[in-house]
């Protein structure tokens, strides 16, 4: 029993290669399909440079970057506090923060409407007092992205902070550093990998946001129609066939790939390795 069995090893190897191979094929084929369509369909390139695509891409980039920035500004203190507090019900709090990760974004969209819509909890008094209506605006796009994507950052940052030895912070205090100084010069650099990983995840999620945006912000070219919404719109235009959707999908694919590569180059300390270490320490 305890001896190594060459036969079991072989079976394991075959199984590993087989399953891994199928898995890889499944992941590669859809991208091959996109590439094949792009190569065989001249309109794909023509459409890629259209005004509609340019406006959607511009909107997508600035809204996703802004919502990521907001996630970092507002999420970092929460993540740090969650990583250090021993308050009762911390598990519940963490679950609440993680909730949008699990929920379908459409739920987030409906929830946003009930809060900030024309008849929402805040939306109605806001419209009555100031005349400001949030739905169908770029602000609504950012809000939808923030609600859906920020938990990815908070989650990563929380485990990153938790992996930083509190002893280091205490030493900094004894050396006369203030809390803020300690946080910025000790804690953040120590958790850098996890924070960056969280930022990338958050940004990627914001860039891909569809359901909540469609419900809360609507879809209008140049105003609220981000790339994912533009792809849906293009798919529904039979005059474009699949060319429009393929064209925009490719652009989004390239943008995401370039950003990920740039991110890798900018962080020699591989973020996923750091995140893995962080989660290990978390346990």
């Amino acid at each position: 029993m305890g001896l190594r069995s060459p036969r079991a090893d072989l079976v394991g190897l075959v199984l590993l290669a087989g399953l891994g191979g199928l898995f890889a094929i499944f992941f590669v084929l859809p991208f091959l399909g996109l590439g094949e369509r792009a190569a065989s369909d001249g309109r794909v390139w023509e459409l890629a440079t259209s005004e509609a695509v340019r406006r959607a891409l511009t909107l997508s980039l600035w809204t996703s970057l802004l919502s990521t920035l907001l996630a970092v500004i507002f999420g970092t203190p929460v993540a740090y506090w969650l990583s250090r507090t021993r308050v009762r019900g911390r598990a519940l709090l963490e679950a609440a923060v993680d909730l949008p990760i699990v929920l379908p974004p459409t739920v987030a969209g409906v929830a946003l409407l009930t809060a900030f819509g024309a008849r929402g909890l805040v939306g109605e008094p806001l419209a009555e007092m100031t005349g400001i209506r949030l739905t169908f605006t770029a602000t609504a796009v950012v809000m939808a992205q923030l609600l859906v994507a920020a938990p990815f950052y908070v989650r990563a940052a929380r485990s990153g902070f938790a992996a930083v030895d509190p002893q280091l912070e205490r030493v900094a205090y004894t050396l006369g550093a203030s809390r803020v100084e300690t946080f910025l010069r000790i804690t953040v650099p120590q958790a850098r990998g996890a924070l960056l990983a969280g930022i990338v995840l958050c940004w990627a999620r914001a860039l891909g946001e569809l359901g909540a945006t469609l419900i809360f912000a609507g879809s209008l070219e140049g105003r609220t129609r981000t790339m994912p919404l533009a792809i849906i719109d293009a798919f529904e235009r039979t005059s474009l066939g699949l060319s429009g959707a393929v064209s925009m999908s490719l652009i989004l694919l390239v943008v995401a790939f370039v950003v990920l590569v740039l991110f890798r180059l900018a962080t020699p300390d591989a973020p996923d390795a750091t995140a893995a270490r962080a989660t290990q320490a978390d346990r």
């Binding site: 609507g218 879809s219 129609r225």
Partner: peptide
Amino acid sequence: NLVSEEANVRAVLTK
């Protein structure tokens, strides 16, 4: 005055 182009007639009605 257009603020949104919806996917289908029922989505328009809902808004």
